[in-house]
Every structure is written in structure tokens, then in C-alpha cells.
């Protein structure tokens, strides 16, 4: 083999992913619409502002506490379209299955997709099915693409965070990542941790209804809240301060995170969003989120402190210290010497 090969870290959502995208992917396909920083792209067609987003789902295990790959494939794309400020309308669905995959499992997944789409108010209107030889993929991979309409006056984007913005998190963090991990590895840890997979389009509509100018909307999936905060800080050229005592974390998630040595701040979520709201609208946006079905535990977790040439994220700890929350290159690595 000549030259470097793709590593698992290249898909971690950390800096290695960025480098791969910037150096090996973008140069070949670059064009003005390519929206790298956001979850989807916005285009205008026939006077309508459309948001388009695509994602592939490769989770292991495919069934887990709180949902299945079917839920993720619908919610993930619905959420990505929603984070553009758009109302998702239609999804496509492409399936890649491994020879030998039980039909029964496929049907269960499709039922989950159907139910999830119904609940989110979107229709799956086109699809594709491929089967590959045993071992060429792991059970089932699903790709969905979503399309939605963006209301006039709304254009949230990662580069729009402004000093004074309140950063609102719509609920507890780390649930999905730890639920998947414990069920995939069959950890014998007594817990009720479930994936938080959920559609967020209603929540986004409620936010936009009272704050159409919302600055940034992001769903902290892979890489968790810490990664999204760092991405937005960099894209907007700002310093972000977080408050540890405001971070909603379920006690059992915190406990398992501690046992595994994994920081929930870097752990994936599938039904949460982060909103950057102008200060004067912060309380109203928070209330709107708390009143929506998946936002009961929403909290203001921090704010944009200033513009800076050295964008970074600081966590104000319970003891009053100020800890840097860095962007990671890949997995969480030990540092203590």
C-alpha cells in the first residue's frame, strides 16, 4: 500500500475528520453551495428557499434501548434539515444490506422508520435497495436525504454566533452515546440509560415562531456538545463560556461516564439541539423549548463572551475554576502524567 489510509478516527467528527474533508474531499467538488460548516445546504429554487441534508446510518447495534437504526435514519436527517431553520417535508431512503440479514429485522426497522416519519410529519417519497455479499457491510446501512422549506427571515448558521448570545441546550447530554455503547458491548451495568433519539422539527418551529432571527442551531451528535461548541466558536470567531452547574446530565449517565472515563460533553446525542439566541430573546426561546415535547430539561448552559482571534471554549467548573474544553483530534486520550 502506498500513502496513508483511512482510519476510524477520520470518522470521529474530530479534527482528523476535518482534515480529511478539507484535503481529500472538498478540493474535488468545491462549489459555492457546499455548506461545510452546517448540517445541510440551503438553496433557492423557484422562489422557495430549500434546505437539503444527507446522512448515512451505520450504528452497531441496530436495535438499542430507546430505538433502532430506523429511528435514527429518520430523526437524524429530519434534525439536520431542521438545524438549517427549515421545515422538513420529504425524505429519501437508500438501504444497503448484507447477504443473510434477517427479513424480520428489516421489517422491524422499516416499521420504525414509518412510525418515526409519521410522528415527525415527513413523508419518505423515494428509495433504493442494494444487497452486498456477506462481510461487505455490517448487517444494514441506511442513507436518508431530507428536503425542507426555510421560512423567510430565518437563516441560522454556524458563523453567526455573536457576543452576548445565550447558548441553550434542549436537554440532557450523553444519553445516546452511552446507551449505544453499553448495549453494543453488552456491558453488565445496571442502568436505564436509553437513546434520546427524537425528531426536533416541532421544537425548531416553536423557536423560529418567537425568534426567527435565531443565530445558530446545531444538533450535537457525533463528538457531542463540546465538539459543536468548538466548531461554532471557530466558525464565528468567538470565545464561548460554559457553566458546569447548568449542564443537564442524568445521574446514571454521569455515573456510567465516570466508570468508563468518558466525558458526556464529548458523547453523542440524537435528540438534542443547541441554540444560540440573542440575549433579549434567550428566556423566551428557553421557554419555547421547554414547552415542546422533547425539551423539558432544556437549560441555558453558557454564552458567547467575546469575539477573538483565538476562538476557544471555557468551562466554568463547580469550584469556580476555568477549564479549557478543547477540540479533540480523535478519541479521548489520557493526558495525566
Amino acid at each position: 500500500m502506498t500513502g496513508p489510509a483511512i482510519l476510524l478516527d477520520h470518522g470521529s467528527g474530530g479534527e482528523k475528520s476535518d482534515t480529511l474533508i478539507e484535503e481529500s474531499i472538498l478540493p474535488h467538488i468545491i462549489n459555492p453551495h457546499l455548506a461545510v460548516l452546517n448540517d445541510g445546504a440551503s438553496v433557492s429554487i423557484g422562489g422557495h428557499r430549500l434546505a437539503i441534508s444527507t446522512d448515512s446510518y451505520v450504528v452497531d447495534p441496530i436495535f438499542f434501548p430507546g430505538g433502532s437504526i430506523g429511528h435514527l435514519a429518520v430523526h437524524g436527517t429530519v434534525n439536520d434539515v431542521s438545524m438549517c431553520g427549515a421545515r422538513p417535508l420529504y425524505l429519501s431512503c437508500a438501504l444497503i444490506m448484507e447477504e443473510g440479514f434477517p427479513v424480520q429485522d428489516l421489517e422491524r426497522i422499516m416499521a420504525d422508520m414509518g412510525a418515526a416519519a409519521k410522528k415527525a410529519g415527513v413523508a419518505i417519497i423515494t428509495g433504493d435497495t442494494k444487497v452486498v455479499p456477506r462481510g461487505a457491510c455490517d448487517k444494514i446501512f441506511i442513507n436518508t436525504t431530507g428536503i425542507g422549506i426555510t421560512p423567510e427571515g430565518t437563516a441560522p448558521s454556524a458563523d453567526k454566533a455573536k457576543p452576548g448570545d445565550a447558548i441553550i441546550l434542549s436537554g440532557t447530554i450523553g444519553d445516546h452515546g452511552l446507551a449505544i455503547l453499553s448495549s453494543r458491548e453488552g456491558l453488565t451495568f445496571q442502568s436505564e440509560i436509553k437513546s434520546d433519539t427524537a425528531p426536533l422539527n416541532q421544537m425548531v418551529s416553536d423557536i423560529i415562531a418567537i425568534c426567527p432571527e435565531i443565530h445558530v442551531l446545531r444538533d450535537p451528535t457525533r463528538g457531542g456538545v463540546a465538539t459543536v461548541l468548538n466548531e461554532v466558536a471557530s466558525a464565528s470567531g468567538v470565545h464561548i463560556t460554559l457553566h458546569e452547574d447548568n449542564l443537564p446530565i442524568r445521574p446514571d449517565v454521569a455515573a456510567l461516564g465516570e466508570l468508563l472515563g468518558l466525558d458526556p460533553l464529548y458523547t453523542a446525542n440524537e435528540g438534542k439541539l443547541l441554540a444560540w439566541a440573542p440575549r433579549e430573546k434567550a428566556e423566551a426561546v428557553l421557554t419555547a423549548i421547554q414547552n415542546s415535547p422533547y425539551g423539558k430539561e432544556a437549560a441555558i448552559i453558557g454564552e458567547v463572551t467575546s469575539t477573538t482571534d483565538h476562538p476557544h471554549v471555557t468551562l466554568t467548573t463547580l469550584t469556580g475554576g476555568k477549564r479549557r474544553v478543547p477540540r479533540l483530534t480523535g478519541d479521548q486520550l489520557p493526558r495525566i502524567c
Partner: peptide, 24 residues
């Protein structure tokens, strides 16, 4: 015993268990 079992699972499955040759 349950806690140690979990530690064992973490190591076997490679969950956040980097390899070290540390004397410390």
C-alpha cells in the same frame, strides 16, 4: 466484583482502554 467485571469488559472490548507501558 460487578465493578471489576465492568472494568474487564471495558478492557476486552477496547472501550476507552488505551494501551500503556507506563511505570507510573
Amino acid at each position: 466484583t460487578e465493578t471489576v467485571t465492568l472494568i474487564k469488559q471495558m478492557m476486552e472490548k477496547g472501550i476507552n482502554s488505551p494501551t500503556t507501558s507506563s511505570m507510573g
